[in-house]
Nucleic acid binder design. Structure first.
Lengths: 252, 252
DNA sequence: AGTGTTTATCGTCAGGCAGACGACTATGAT
DNA sequence: ATCATAGTCGTCTGCCTGACGATAAACACT
């Protein structure tokens, strides 16, 4: 209960980012290659120290901009063009999660449309969009023969938590539109759900659901044929943020 | 990106607890009186520093035991008698949220049955169960006349976030049973929902819903009449943790 | 003992929504 | 012209919810 400044152990506080996007119908996460030990040469989630005068959300937004050039979507401005969604995910503070010192990491979840090419401080070869399935597969083996995820530190756990958050949150919110460009078709939105959930959805029932939910989608009047086939209506994200009743995720 | 130990600003890391229970059909939270500045004499959420060798969840469980004597429910043991539910809520790290130094607080949410009497390190007069509605009412006035919640620091925000988490989570999980003693009736469980949501639920539809969801409730064979009226069956919490389809929270 | 009150539990019925799927439309490719 | 692709509109059936009637089993009175 005491705040005696001499009585608390000092911690380093970082923000780590789970940046998700959908590329070629597959859910992908931003990974950066570590340039120094520990885990040198291994892939990790982007992140960095929180500065002394900085809010946690500010630090996350700054790191996101540094790594991707993405601006964060202002929650007060719905359907803002090109912005990413950013929210706090969870905090990881195991002693020993970083072998050098006590680091508490406040993980954030960012959802972005496909547009941007990755850049890690100008060095693109050290950043990439990796398929989430690959990053979470436990293919490597540790020195004791135990399966080891290809991500450094506890970042596989953080990524898994972020993916699970995204999967559950698009059920009951309009968050899936954060994966889409400012204007998109119902089919494009459906393919976002299919990529994030890893299932196939019935196009007719999906269309009925999203167009029948007031405030979810706003037609822009335009059409596009960029997916081939019959031209589709273009929509913007509407003001509604909560989906009630929710979109049901199929079993298994 | 660098972890040079001389290059990061030191933070104090604390855990704060939103401990909720239902007393006399009202949602209550544990509050402790501050014994020192700042906010001396004001009510605050219980909490304390994370120790150097301690996990965040361990620190939260330790603080919970110190303040209430409650043991934490092991998630691997469903329907454990008398244990509290504990989960991480969110992390609050505004510079300036503590006027003396940079403190990052990892808030946790605990749900407990009514049984325990509060105790703050043995001094019961400095801890109490306060109605959530009172704690969140903005009754006081600051020196500029602006409304001020009766809780110190940003604890009103933390409490509001914790209550909202509890309200939404009992919709789609069996978490409401964490507010109940090991054996409880359908009516007692219904009064938990009514207290947390602040609404009245139809006893017949509620009964149909909870008894018709497989794995949610397990009859113990006993009955009780402690609520008056016709004797009610006693149940334990079943193994199911997810409620599908969810319990619907009435509008408004 | 009877009557009223309280709480628990079972049933019924109508409306809404989701899953399954048929049918039709509008484009580009061969 | 024909096919493949994708979008859009309808229909039907089954499940679940909300509203609410009815019955059951206790206690508190008189």
């Amino acid at each position: 209960m005491s705040y005696d400044p001499s009585a608390f152990p000092p911690f380093a506080v970082t923000v780590d980012l789970v940046v998700l996007t959908v590329r070629r119908h597959v859910l992908c996460a931003l990974a950066v290659r570590r340039g120094e030990p520990p885990f040198q040469g291994r892939w990790a989630l982007p992140g960095g120290f929180v500065r002394a005068d900085e809010d946690l959300a500010q630090a996350a937004a700054r790191e996101l901009a540094e790594e991707t050039g993405l601006r964060v979507h202002d929650p007060a401005v719905p359907a803002q063009a090109g912005g990413a969604h950013l929210e706090q995910l969870a905090t990881y503070g195991d002693p020993g999660r970083d072998p050098r010192m006590r680091v508490v990491s406040v993980a954030h979840l960012a959802l972005a449309p496909d547009l941007p090419a990755p850049r890690a401080g100008g060095d693109a070869s050290n950043a990439r969009w990796a398929q989430v399935g690959e990053l979470l597969q436990q293919t490597d083996r540790g020195r004791n023969g135990e399966p080891v995820a290809p991500l450094a530190f506890d970042h596989a756990q953080i990524l898994a938590d972020g993916v699970e958050r995204a999967r559950s949150k698009i059920e009951y919110s309009s968050l899936a539109t954060a994966f889409c460009p400012p204007e998109f078709t119902v089919g494009e939105l459906r393919r976002v759900y299919e990529a994030v959930w890893g299932v196939a959805l019935d196009p007719r029932n999906f269309h009925r659901k999203v167009t029948g939910t007031p405030g979810f989608l706003v037609p822009t009047g335009g059409t596009t044929t960029r997916q081939g086939g019959r031209p589709a209506q273009l929509f913007r994200a509407g003001g509604a943020t909560l989906l009630n009743p929710p979109m049901l995720r199929p079993e298994v």
